[in-house]
Simulated assay, not measured.
Amino acid sequence: MNQQLNNAFTIFLSLLVEAMPFLLLGVLFSGLLLLFVDERQLIARLPKNPLLGALIGSMVGFLFPVCECGNVPVARRLLMQGAPSPVAIGFLLAAPTINPIVIWATWTAFRDQPEIVVLRVMFSLAIATIVGWVFSAQTDMRPLLQPAVAAGVKPKPTKAEREAETPNLLQSGTFWIDQPGKPVRMDATVLQATLAATTATKPLPERLRLLLDNTVQEMRELGAVLVLGSAIAASIQVLVPREVILSLGGGPITSILAMMILAGLVSICSTVDSFFVLSFASTFTTGSLLAFLVFGPMIDLKGIGLMLSIFKARAVIYLFALAAQLTLLLTLFVNLHLI
């Protein structure tokens, strides 16, 4: 029993130490977006087409190499600043894999099997794009978001609402002058979003102070969730014998399901997961190795905990179900094709 506790604690610390730098990287990037980038211009340049938006969002991770811990605060920030949901969800699912660090690490591990590197990138990009596009059917994302996030998300006005909209100066109420000729109603949510969008004009020392405050606040919130997820993942790794999962690795379908379950349980960072799964290369099918490499960075225990800081439980279930089904179909095709 003591040995199991020691193993669990060692795994817990390794997961935490491995993931915390990438969570910090994501939080810092989120703060930089808030304080040093005019997000109104950034969001305005994003494509409005749902499918194209999901594809662009999935590819943005190549420019910002964050792990499955660091992508959550960035995706949350994108949603709160009005980015289309396909863009944010595409980034959320693809960023842990579609980035140069992970691609290089996968190539290093599977130098003798370059098809795994190529298929990992292609499958991750395809799944993230499709899932983001599916979520675009939800016109108003607020019912699927946590209250703290939903409060900062402005729903898309319908055509009738845009046509019926009355100029602010002709409405009753109290207004705050944002810019000359641009009054803003003194609503708490609107005012907060407007003030956040104008922080890029503040002096550098003040922006740095705000960046520090924002980093501490988000690390306190997301770090607690990461600790809990890492503890659960470590406990399951110790309590569930690996032999149980290995015994399922012979068939084209059971091997994929086993590796998807393993990927969700071990919650290993996408920058090193290729070296972990390499140890199974001699006993598991190519499709099952890909299932681990594709599904794990999208959906694992500690990642689900972090996603719950953005989405309500049913939205996370939707993400899980869609990603799992698409991963199974694509990797099963690889197994059957190779067989």
Rank of each mutant, 00 (worst) to 15 (best):
S14M: 08
P21Y: 03
F22E: 01
L28G: 05
F29D: 11
D38R: 12
K48Q: 11
L51C: 14
A54E: 05
M59P: 00
L63R: 11
F64Y: 09
L79I: 06
P84K: 03
P84M: 03
G90T: 05
L92S: 02
A95Q: 07
N99F: 06
W107L: 06
M122P: 15
L125N: 02
V131G: 01
V131L: 02
F135S: 03
F135Y: 09
Q138H: 15
M141H: 04
M141P: 00
R142K: 08
Q146F: 01
A148C: 11
K156F: 15
E161Q: 07
L170M: 08
Q179I: 04
Q179P: 00
D187Q: 13
T189V: 09
T199N: 11
R207H: 10
R207E: 03
L208Q: 05
L210P: 00
L211D: 04
M219C: 11
V227L: 12
A231S: 11
A233Q: 05
V240T: 13
P252T: 03
S255N: 14
S255K: 08
A258C: 05
L262Y: 06
G264V: 07
S270W: 10
L278E: 11
F292P: 01
G305H: 00
L306N: 00
F311M: 04
R314F: 11
A315H: 02
V316S: 10
A323K: 11
L329R: 15
L329D: 07
L330G: 08
T331F: 01
